[in-house]
Structures are given as structure tokens and as C-alpha cells.
């Protein structure tokens, strides 16, 4: 019986970590496709489009600032745009480009950009 539970636990842990890895990989691709043009290749807010912008995009590497945002805040900002979270309208709503699941993958990836150092 003990062996059964140990195997089950190992299986659950393995599958959840695999799911997590897959989500982050997807989130990484979505970040590169939709976010880097403004938020930058390194997520520092200095993307290729920023030269003529009136409001600079959020620096996702700013851990201190980013830990004050909940996952729900980030999800809402991506899905409904900056205005929905009282931020700049220049951050558009991406609700027609990504499903809710994809946005969740993206939120998980943004967390690695901003706050991975904290977890280490």
C-alpha cells in the first residue's frame, strides 16, 4: 500500500511539474509574440516600439513593483487592457488574440520574468 501511495505521489508531482513546464513554454512564446515589441526582449520596458511612446511600458523585471500586482491584476491588464486596471490605454486588450488559458500561461511566464530571483 505504501508503495502505491509513493508511486501515486511521484506521478502527481511529475505530471504537475510537466504541466507547469509546458505552460511556461507556451507563455514564453506568447510573451515573445505579443509583449516584447513594447516591453522589450528582456522585459525591461524598452521594446522596439518605445522610442515614440508618450508612456513607457511596464518594466517587468522590476521585482519590487511587480510583487505588488496579483496574478488577477496581470490577467485583467492583458485581457482587458491597461485602462481596466487604471493604467495606460496604450496597453491594449488582448482578449481577441489569446484564450483565457493562454493568458494564464502568459501570467505565469511574466511571474518568471519579474520574480524568479525572489524564489531562488
Amino acid at each position: 500500500m505504501k508503495i502505491f501511495y509513493t508511486t501515486l505521489l511521484a506521478w502527481v508531482l511529475l505530471s504537475s511539474s510537466q504541466a507547469m513546464a509546458a505552460d511556461l513554454k507556451k507563455g514564453d512564446q506568447l510573451y515573445r509574440a505579443y509583449c516584447t515589441q513594447c516591453h522589450g526582449i528582456n522585459g525591461d520596458g524598452w521594446g522596439v516600439n518605445t522610442a515614440s511612446m508618450d508612456v513607457l511600458p511596464k518594466d517587468h523585471t522590476d521585482t519590487k513593483e511587480m510583487v505588488t500586482r496579483t496574478d488577477d491584476d496581470i490577467f485583467k491588464a492583458i485581457k482587458e487592457g491597461g485602462k481596466a486596471v487604471s493604467k495606460s490605454n496604450l496597453m491594449p486588450n488582448w482578449d481577441s488574440n489569446m484564450t483565457d488559458d493562454e493568458i494564464r500561461d502568459l501570467v505565469a511566464y511574466v511571474r518568471t520574468v519579474c520574480c524568479e530571483k525572489e524564489n531562488k
Binding site: 515573445r32 509574440a33 516584447t36 515589441q37 522589450g40 526582449i41 528582456n42 524598452w46 521594446g47 522596439v48 518605445t50 522610442a51
Partner: peptide, 19 residues
């Protein structure tokens, strides 16, 4: 200005990303 998809043309500089 950045090609069909900009990403592989980006150069990271001290002044920000450029094409």
C-alpha cells in the same frame, strides 16, 4: 520597419531595443 515579424531583427542596446 521591423520586417514581417520583428523579433529576430531586434538588437538589445543600452538605450533600449532597436531594429
Amino acid at each position: 520597419p521591423g520586417g514581417h515579424f520583428f523579433l529576430d531583427k531586434v538588437k538589445v542596446t543600452e538605450d533600449g531595443d532597436i531594429i
